[in-house]
Design a protein around this nucleic acid. Structure first.
Lengths: 262, 262
DNA sequence: TTTCTAGTTATTTTCGAACATAATTCAAAT
DNA sequence: ATTTGAATTATGTTCGAAAATAACTAGAAA
């Protein structure tokens, strides 16, 4: 209810003033040549475009299973729910399709990617591979600031002492946020932009399975001691031990989720 | 000039006939529930939507370096070049952004992803990882039809006996097509949809580096014997030897490309 | 000459409406 | 009762125009 007034498209534009638009001049010469890296300094660039925000919101709703697996994503509903135009929605869904969160059938629209035990197994294998790869690189190359980021993120995570089935939604979201930031801090010295990007999509997909199991069972396992131990091993630069623990950390989470799938 | 009439959007719709559109009926109940997998049989589903086609065309032009690295992708130019609307272009560019082929800066448009030696190094490492992973899975699980696909693809590839700097563009494109199909056939028994998808994007990015070097040097290395040997090892189910050869195959190509970058 | 500032142009982003395709309904015939 | 096919409804796709942002230019002040 109250879909119209509940949310503004992130940039306030209540009024629309007309504007004169003179006929455009003659066509410019072809400008397909590479952009000059030259004198023009870095500009603002911090304002996120509306579509990016929308994409993040959709991704989060899929990961949180607010939009459950295999659910149809009709533009009418999405337009109401997110207060965005059709074009923006299509752009976001296209990106999420490339990320594997959404399936697109030509002329039949989009739907949330389905889940299965096989898919979880496959996802978990890749996650182990990528998390360990990034972790080894970080341990090898990390500097003092990297260590500081880990310590700080772990502290933030530990400040949430107890989390359980009776915790509120926002508490759970906050814990998940800090949990994600901790894991990201561990890997944040990995120099490969590509590895980090793929890892992020895999991590989100794993998060979806975990949230799904959580929604179905209500059980929560925090295993805080593993995080402390993981940080210790990483800061001691023991790559083998750290990767071993990371692997069991991921496998354990996958097993917990797998029991509730199908 | 003549951007309006120069190109039809791939599905003929020259005339537009008006249509009566009655006021829609009362709203339907919420239909966010999962779609029934039920009685509805598989429909046509073979007609690719225009945007998908456009996306493939853009991807190919980037890989072929028709759109060189770091080139700005202005909507005006793209609209002329591909005869598509702005919305479709944005969708395609968004997907290519997720694939790593395009960079998007908020409110400043899109540009072709840049290249560098570091990036090539990073890409190559991941390619070795994924090609070998898929290859091992295929060798383990492949059946008779898989073997037949390999033999057929190799035959198609070998039919192009000579390729060189004096070959025409379409000949080069045909060889590259068959080369890609051969490599895909080798891995086509890998059951992981995820591995295959990521591998595809990495393969395309590698293809871009190779084409870039080719455009700058004119040199072509075909190493046909490696393909024959690779097929032999794979069909003999010798995973270790096949992966070793695959690795050197990829590293060699990367070295050839790397000499011409920067 | 250099440096701001305001106006101007160029480009991107967003939204709605028209068009195309799929899903549904319903009546008639077997 | 079942099936077939046409009309209808619902939904997805495409395109152009208006609004928003950035890039550029020129003119005035230091």
């Amino acid at each position: 209810m109250t879909n119209t007034a509940s949310r503004a498209p992130a940039n306030g534009k209540p009024g629309r003033r007309p504007r004169t638009r003179p006929a455009q001049a003659e066509p410019q010469a072809d400008s397909t040549e590479p952009r000059k890296p030259g004198p023009r300094g870095a500009a603002t660039g911090d304002t996120a475009t509306g579509t990016d925000e929308l994409c993040a919101r959709l991704r989060e709703d899929i990961v949180r299973c607010v939009l459950p697996p295999h659910a149809r994503l009709k533009f009418g509903d999405l337009q109401q729910r997110y207060g965005a135009g059709i074009g923006s929605l299509r752009e976001a869904l296209m990106q999420l399709t490339a990320e594997g969160m959404v399936i697109s059938e030509s002329f039949r629209g989009f739907c949330v990617a389905p889940i299965s035990l096989d898919d979880l197994q496959d996802l978990t294998e890749l996650r182990v591979e990528f998390e360990n790869r990034a972790l080894r690189a970080s341990i090898l190359l990390g500097d003092d600031q990297w260590e500081a980021r880990i310590v700080a993120a772990l502290h933030m995570l530990n400040k949430i002492t107890h989390i359980g089935p009776d915790s509120s939604d926002s508490e759970m979201a906050e814990w998940e946020e800090r949990h994600g930031r901790f894991h990201e801090a561990l890997l944040s010295a990995c120099p490969s932009r590509r590895v980090m990007q793929i890892r992020k999509t895999l991590y989100d997909q794993g998060r979806r399975y975990r949230n799904l199991a959580l929604a179905r069972s209500g059980a929560v396992e925090v295993h805080a001691y593993q995080h402390q131990e993981l940080a210790n091993l990483v800061l001691a630069r023991d790559a083998d031990a750290a990767c071993a623990l990371m692997t069991s950390h991921i496998l354990e989470a996958a097993n917990n989720a797998g029991r509730l799938v199908d």
